[in-house]
Design a protein around this nucleic acid. Structure first.
Length: 579
DNA sequence: GCCGTTTTCGGCCCGACTGTTTTCAGTCG
């Protein structure tokens, strides 16, 4: 069964029910089920076969039945029925910022408007402004929303968002009236893509801060400006929100605006169970108007009898329960890493010379660098011929001699293409000369899921295959990955003793962090690779670490934290296991 | 539609801002 299609179908149910004016808790239940499915780190099909769907939190009898129907028939009869009630264009209309299901339904029933184009016309000729509950400003807002929808998908890559946010944070912090300020939202949680930028600040003069915020450089329009909250558009495409609170409220506000929404909901439920109310201003015991005090987020969690949950984990994927039982892992930190692997040099399509990486490692306190240039068949990446491999190995030996006293070592790796039939891109006698082999798919993306899965699994069976590189080949916001049964690939990695890479390049961040818990459960170790083609690309390791943290990884789970000798020992053991 | 030793009904997290109202609904996060 196609999980993505199922998620889309259930999401559509949610919107259609909203349009239909159904009980909001009923439509919301579909949203909750969708999140449960997205967070699912086990095999969906197993749940369907074993009839254990209702074990999942948020999936009850009704939705389980619909999932089973979808698995059988490929569609859901009630969905088909609902679809016939509303024209297709209405769904698209609800994507327009500022236009929700209620207004969409009103323009449809009152004016017969059933597409974005018709809606634009109705805004322009004044019909919208004439509707009850609508006005000139609403019509204009809808037009703006339509334009915004057409111009960009609404999401931004983590690296771009961070780059835009940091200078703004600096400016907010530099304001005299601001005491503390921080980035919140999905950016603080280090999601691989973010919708907008959120900032939280503590101040005694929110008006001044609001004024300064809406007049920042780069602000192209002001979406809203209130006494304590403002939203602006940066460069016409990126929305930024700032919320101001008092110093005492700040920890609660930071927690609230970091989210996720689902995490907050869980925290509020816990607060209620303890006879308290949690909101962005404080934590209030029932009947009292004064909040419990907190100096930091840590104190808020403490009041709820939870250990501190780092922002990256706040996705309601079991972290609240684990924090309640004191079972949160100690998350990976940059200082835990001893080596970095997966970088390209002038031997293939990278800009740095081999020795540049040795220098960088010495300057940044790393013990080893796993060089991994492209293999011979990837001509577009200037892959290495066998002769070039020998040349590179000689040069690495020479560099290692020179750098030994500085405690830096280059490892002779390769990013070896997985060919169409699942075989590797060099003969065995060449492969065995590498210290490690990252296997990656760069070609034939259009095979079926079954074929791709078999292809990747076969590659992992090769004794010399150490690591599966960027598992799906996805490019965030640009290209979907090729179809791959990642659960099966993970199980096969476990069986063959292979590791799986978190490709830290912010365009990829592949394998997806949501699959990491499953890899851990199966006992598959993880490597973090920047896939660097320039020296600056090595800084991308931070994004890989962030994904590792989102996947609850600690020092023990990540091969980068081993010494070079221990890492090579891992490679050897893998060879033995697959032979 | 989901959920449950306050359980099979009656709840379901909470608040800011906007635009339209004349006290509030809709949208968003």
């Amino acid at each position: 069964m196609n999980k993505k299609a199922l998620v889309e179908a259930l999401s559509e149910m949610e919107v259609l029910l909203e349009l239909d004016g159904a009980n909001p808790f009923r439509s919301g239940a579909y949203g909750k089920a969708v999140r449960a499915l997205e967070a699912l780190d086990t095999d969906l099909e197993e749940h369907v076969e074993n009839g254990t769907l209702t074990d999942l939190d948020g999936i009850g009898k009704g939705i389980a039945q619909k999932i089973e129907e979808f698995a059988q028939a490929g569609t859901i009869s009630e969905l088909e029925e609902m679809r016939s009630k509303f024209p297709e264009g209405l769904l698209e209309m609800t994507l327009i910022p500022g236009l929700g299901p209620k207004k969409a339904r009103a323009v449809y029933t009152e004016l017969g408007v059933s597409s974005v184009d018709q809606l634009r016309a109705a805004c322009e000729d004044g019909r919208i402004a004439g509707l009850k509950g609508f006005g000139d400003k609403t019509a204009r807002k809808i037009l703006d929303g339509i334009e915004q929808l057409a111009r960009f998908s609404g999401r931004h890559r983590l690296d771009a968002a961070l780059k835009a946010a940091l200078p703004i944070l600096e400016k907010i912090r530099s304001l005299k009236s601001v005491q503390e300020a921080e980035i919140g939202g999905s950016l603080r949680r280090r999601k691989e893509t973010v919708g907008d930028l959120d900032f939280v600040a503590s101040t005694k003069e929110p008006g001044k801060v609001m004024e300064a915020f809406v007049s920042l450089d780069g602000v192209t329009s002001v979406i809203g400006k209130g006494e304590t909250k403002s939203s602006v558009l940066l460069g016409g495409t990126l929305q930024a929100d700032l919320r101001c609170v008092s110093g005492a409220e700040y920890p609660f506000a930071l927690l609230h605006f970091t989210g996720s929404k689902e995490h907050n909901t869980r925290l509020r439920q816990i607060a209620r169970e303890k006879g308290m109310k949690l909101n962005e201003y404080g934590l209030f015991p029932d009947g009292k108007e004064e909040s419990l005090r907190a100096k930091s987020e840590k104190d808020v969690y403490k009041h709820l009898a939870l250990s501190y949950i780092p922002p990256e984990m706040r996705e309601d994927m079991g972290e609240v329960e684990a924090a309640g039982e004191g079972k949160l892992p100690r998350l990976l930190e940059q200082k835990d890493l001893r080596g970095i692997l997966h970088m390209h040099t002038t031997y293939s399509d990278g800009r740095p010379k081999l020795e540049d990486y040795a220098e960088w490692a010495a300057a940044h306190g790393y013990e080893w660098m796993g060089i991994a240039d492209h293999s011979q068949s990837l001509t577009i990446g200037r892959g290495m011929s066998i002769e070039r491999v020998w040349e590179q190995h000689e040069e690495i030996d020479a560099i290692n001699k020179k750098w030994k006293s500085k405690g830096v070592r280059l490892l002779k790796g390769v990013e070896c293409d997985i060919l169409k039939d699942g075989s590797l891109d060099y003969p065995d006698e060449v492969l065995k000369e590498f210290d490690f082999v990252i296997c990656s798919v760069h070609t034939y993306f259009n095979l079926t899921e079954k074929e791709q899965t078999a292809r990747v699994m076969k590659a992992l069976e090769h004794p010399c295959a150490t690591i599966l590189g960027h598992a799906t080949g996805r490019l965030l916001l640009a290209r979907d990955g090729f179809p791959l049964d990642q659960h099966a690939a993970i199980r096969h990695a476990a069986k063959t003793g292979a590791a799986i890479e978190i490709n830290a390049n912010p365009r990829r961040l592949d394998m997806d962090w949501r699959l990491i818990p499953y890899a851990m459960e199966q006992g598959v170790p993880i490597t973090i690779g920047p896939d660097a083609h320039r020296i600056e690309g090595l800084d991308d390791i931070q994004f890989g670490i962030a994904m590792a943290r989102k996947g609850w990884l600690g020092k023990r789970d990540v091969l980068n934290c081993l010494s070079a000798e221990k890492f090579l020992k891992f490679v050897k053991e893998k060879k033995k296991r697959s032979e």
